[in-house]
Structure formats: C-alpha cells, structure tokens
C-alpha cells in the first residue's frame, strides 16, 4: 500500500466517521452562527470599518477552528483507536490524511463564515474578489497545518480543551496578522497585486510549518 493511497484512505475514514456523528460540523456551524450573532447584537446599526470587519472575521475563524479542528486526533485517543491506526498506516500517511481532512474542514468553515458575514454585516463587501479568495485559501491551509500538528500534541496531554488555543495562538499569529491585512485590502478594493507581500508571507509560512510538522510528527504520534 503506497503512501498516497493510504493518505487517501485516512482522509476517507475521517470523512466517513465525521459524516456518521457530524460532531465537528455541528459544533463549528453552531459556533460560527453564535459568534456572528453576538457581534451583530453588539454593533447593531453601526458601520464598522473594513479593518474592524476583517479583524472580526479572523477572530471568528480562529476560535471556530480551535473548537473543531482538534477533533481529528482527540477522537482517536478517546475512542482508543490510535494504536490500530499506528499499525495499519505509516505516520506520514496519517499526518497528510488528517491534514487534508482539516484543510477541507477549514475551507468549508471559511466559506460558511464568508457567506454569513456577507449576509449579516452590510459593510462586509468583498471588492477585490481575487485577493480575498487567495488569502482565504492560503490561510486555510496554514491554519489547518498548524492546527493538525498541535491537535496531535494536545491529544496526548491531560487538559485537552483549554490548552489548545493557548498553544495555537502564538504560532498562528504571523498567519492571522497577515491574513487580516490582506482581507482589509480586499474589502477596501485595492488591486490584486497590492497584497503580494502578504501572499509571500503566507506561502512561506505554509511551507515552513508543513515541512516542520511532517518532520516531527513521528515523535508525537508514536508512543
């Protein structure tokens, strides 16, 4: 069984078990709706600037990701299936399978938040669609990559819930700050090329974190 095929098998397994329980999707949807409504109740008829809106957007994305993305590894530990998975799949297949699952989940999450923000906040109008699309795409991959390796760490620790955002925030902050700046540019209608620096940071961040996680994943995964 080659790595590519087993990666696909891990992704499929996670997708199937998710579709059976819908734990992560339900939690994420409820979280996103609640967060957006709370913000809307607070600002009412105010018209926040594009910087504030992009900040709110990424705050909701960050905390939603923190509430749902650790599930991939924590559920393996809780159900006691991590040993079996260690036997049937190589660590790199597990890592990339879980990573792909989290990327899909984050992309879905971000699309849902985008739609919700467009509906709820009149000021949230994406002027430069290309910048916004690329930013959300790159940030989702980066966010999923960091969340995956930290979920693997957190699954082995005692306090799983509270520690996760604490560990993730400092590592994700370069990504979040960059994503916020690029989103502000997209909302302000600046041309696509203006955010070139942000794309560079996001791409190098993804490469560095994914390569680093891949190299250290063995040590986290194997007991």
């Amino acid at each position: 069984m080659n790595t590519f095929y087993s990666t696909y098998a891990v992704l499929l397994k996670d997708a199937q078990s998710e579709l059976r329980t819908r734990y992560a999707v339900n939690a994420l949807v409820m979280f996103v709706v609640t967060a957006a409504v709370i913000v809307q109740l607070a600002i009412r008829s105010e018209l926040p600037s594009s910087a504030v809106l992009s900040g709110l957007f990424w705050v909701v994305v960050f905390f939603a990701a923190m509430s749902g993305l650790s599930r991939t590894f924590v559920s393996e530990e809780e159900r006691g299936t991590s040993m079996t998975l260690q036997l049937v799949a190589s660590p790199s297949a597990v890592y990339f399978g879980k990573l792909s699952f989290n990327i899909v989940l984050t992309l879905l999450l971000n699309s849902a938040i985008t739609i919700l923000f467009t509906v709820v906040f009149p000021g949230f109008v994406v002027e430069t669609f290309g910048t916004f699309l690329l930013t959300v795409l790159l940030s989702s991959i980066g966010l999923a990559s960091t969340s995956t390796i930290l979920a693997a760490i957190i699954a082995k620790a005692n306090t799983k819930g509270t520690l996760y955002p604490v560990l993730a925030f400092p590592i994700l902050i370069p990504l979040l700050m960059t994503a916020m700046r690029a989103t502000t540019r997209a909302l302000d209608g600046e041309p696509f090329g203006n955010a070139a620096e942000e794309y560079q940071i996001l791409i190098s961040y993804i490469m560095v974190i994914t390569a680093g996680s891949y190299l250290v994943f063995d040590y986290v995964w194997k007991d």
Binding site: I149, I171, I173, P174, T178, Y205, I209, G212
Partner: peptide
C-alpha cells in the same frame, strides 16, 4: 520532554517571522 521538544521546534520555526520579517 518529547511533546514540549516538538512545541519548541514548531515555535522556533515561527520566531523568524515574528522577529525578522513582520
């Protein structure tokens, strides 16, 4: 020791972004 080593390596990777780039 194992998990905190992994965390210090990962955060070490983001330090250049925080200190030298951003």
């Amino acid at each position: 020791a194992r998990l905190s080593a992994v965390y210090t390596i990962l955060s070490g990777l983001t330090v250049p972004f925080l200190v030298f780039i951003m």
